[in-house]
Design a protein around this nucleic acid. Structure first.
Lengths: 152, 152
DNA sequence: CAAAATTAAATTGTGTACAATTTAATTTTC
DNA sequence: GAAAATTAAATTGTACACAATTTAATTTTG
């Protein structure tokens, strides 16, 4: 009954997926103390980034941008609404769609968030160029995955 | 009342964090159809990878390896136990610790999982060397983050 | 144009994540 | 060696993710 050693391909340290999963959660952890004074969670911060860039999107458009569905966004947006940062309103021209808009408070929060990216760059100790190339390689990977047919 | 354009630093597409977050969820999505026949979720698969590598760890040791706490692991491990893949037992020499061990079924599942890494590599369309370097850069980033004092 | 198909959100249910607290066992200290 | 401190899991509570279904509005089609 000699036990086979785990083949290299199944070793945790070999996995790109785990490196990604661990890095993503670590970076999110860096944001936590910076976002806490703003009263935002990390996914909520992402929504605010999108809205600061372009206000007045539908839930669907926000979802496309962030790759999140209404099952995730609807409750998250309700919390942002409770916090007074956004409004949610059915559109007149198509009542199926819900228009998400920043309140004055939501817009004002951008100033308080403006220092966060630089603070993060400090924490990560990555030269700007290296940060860019890592980011772009990850984007390429994500795009590649989403193009592939995902057998159905 | 002219609205200021969002500064570059706050643009979603500039964020390394979002590239990481999106890539991690995309890759997890690739695993889903491959793990479903094994009856595993992605975090459960990670636990199995660790146990296939070294059986008989405590919850704390598993947590160190995967960077997860007992709040996440305890219910996850209970599900693996319900699925008949592991056993959970208090250790005799220290009753605070819970020993996690593979059942025969849990060990046998390794064979069914052995093809997954290659399948993933196919999907991601990344040359092996590039996959390795991306993985190692992510590990370096994670290590860097976890070293930094995280102001307290 | 009315029935069928499609679409956008919301809802439901399961499974993480993670902070904070609790419980129980072990170590340390006085 | 008993009280205090520490430690390991478990528990509690909040907030995602995401599959699957439901609801309501719009579009397409026969």
């Amino acid at each position: 009954m000699k036990r086979q050693p785990t083949p290299d391909q199944l070793l945790l340290d070999q996995q790109l997926c785990f490196a990604l999963y661990a890095a993503s959660r670590s970076v999110t952890g860096l944001y936590r103390p910076l976002l806490e004074p703003l009263g935002l969670t990390y996914p909520q911060y992402l929504v605010m980034l999108v809205l600061w860039e372009q206000d007045g999107l539908t839930v669907r458009e926000l979802g496309q941008r962030l790759q999140l569905d209404s099952g995730t966004l609807t409750p998250l947006l309700k919390r942002l609404q409770s916090a007074g940062l956004i409004t949610r309103q059915r559109r007149q021209q198509d009542e199926r769609e819900v228009d998400i808009r920043l309140t004055d408070a939501g817009l004002a929060l951008r100033d308080k968030a403006s220092g966060i990216p630089e603070c993060l760059a400090q924490c990560m100790q990555l030269p700007f160029e290296q940060m860019q190339s890592l980011r772009d390689e990850l984007k390429r990977l994500t795009r590649q995955i989403q193009l592939s047919p995902n057998e159905d």
